[in-house]
């Protein structure tokens, strides 16, 4: 369970997050949606202790994110951010292997190698495993990064717009894999998404943010309505129902 309590964040006079309190229960897929600049990535970065907390508290299964040693938290949660500058000359397999670092401190055991192989299979990377990262397309690199986060084998997986650069096939494939990890292995996945329909299809719960606040919180069918989407995004979005699921059509 991730408990976020009274968290605010400000740069100079700009408020990025204002007094956010929310609880994300263990298990399942929670989608974080909202317009650009709503504070989704900042919130995720705070949960993942990539930025220091200015006010409020965040705990993960009772462990304070601010004071628990990084080594311990690295076995608890994995984070994938939006922009990753990977300077060094690495192969896909090496990069994915780094996900095992919190467990093996750099000496890969047979067990580690098994997990790496499994992750390469799961994210369709086995053909690419020997390629250098700089020779990959944006989407392939994105998948390698997700595989690395998966390899960390943590209870919590925080993903900031993992569908960036992915084509329809791999976007759906990634969402399906994440859904399966959540269902079969009981992982908790918190994912920032821009495509509301992916959130509607794969998430158990949607948290919507706007201007640094949480403006809506509920099941997909509760949130994907024209009224709610108007509150979140500030414009009229028609919603229709296909196969019993609400589908937003923000195209015209």
């Amino acid at each position: 369970m991730i408990e976020i309590n009274g968290v605010s964040l400000a740069y100079d006079v700009t408020n990025i997050l204002s007094d956010i309190s929310v609880t994300i229960p263990k298990g399942g897929v929670t989608a974080l949606i909202g317009p650009n600049g709503a504070g989704k990535s900042s919130l995720l970065a705070l949960v993942a202790r990539l930025q220091p907390l200015q006010s409020g508290a965040i705990t993960m299964d009772g462990l304070s994110v601010a004071s628990t040693p990084g080594k311990v938290l690295a076995k608890k949660m994995a984070i994938l951010r939006q922009d990753n500058h990977l300077g060094s000359r690495l192969t896909v397999r090496e990069l994915v292997g780094f996900g095992r670092f919190p467990h093996s401190r750099g000496h890969l055991t047979a067990e580690d190698r098994k997990v790496v192989d499994e992750a390469l299979m799961l994210f369709d990377l086995d053909d690419l495993s020997g390629r250098f990262l700089e020779t990959l397309s944006g989407g392939q690199r994105q998948r390698a990064l997700v595989a690395m986060a998966y390899c960390q084998d943590t209870d919590y997986l925080l993903l900031d717009e993992p569908l960036n650069n992915l084509d329809m096939y791999f976007a759906r494939d990634l969402m399906r894999s994440l859904r399966r990890i959540a269902d079969e292995r009981g992982k908790t996945i918190v994912i920032v998404l821009h495509d509301i329909n992916y959130a509607g299809t794969f998430a158990d719960r949607i948290l919507a943010m706007r201007n640094g606040r949480i403006v809506a919180d509920g099941r997909p069918d509760e949130l994907i309505t024209t009224d709610m989407l108007n509150t979140i995004y500030g414009f009229e979005i028609p919603v229709t129902t296909i196969d019993g699921r609400p589908v937003a059509l923000p195209f015209r």
């Binding site: 993942a48 202790r49 990539l50 040693p69 990084g70 080594k71 311990v72 938290l73 690295a74 076995k75 994995a78 984070i79 994938l80 951010r81 990753n84 500058h85 990977l86 300077g87 060094s88 780094f98 996900g99 670092f101 919190p102 750099g106 986060a149 960390q152």
Partner: peptide, 15 residues
């Protein structure tokens, strides 16, 4: 090696 991955990735891996 992990530090070479950059700040965010390194913190994520527990550095």
């Amino acid at each position: 090696d992990v530090v070479a991955l950059g700040r965010d990735a390194a913190i994520g891996l527990g550095i």
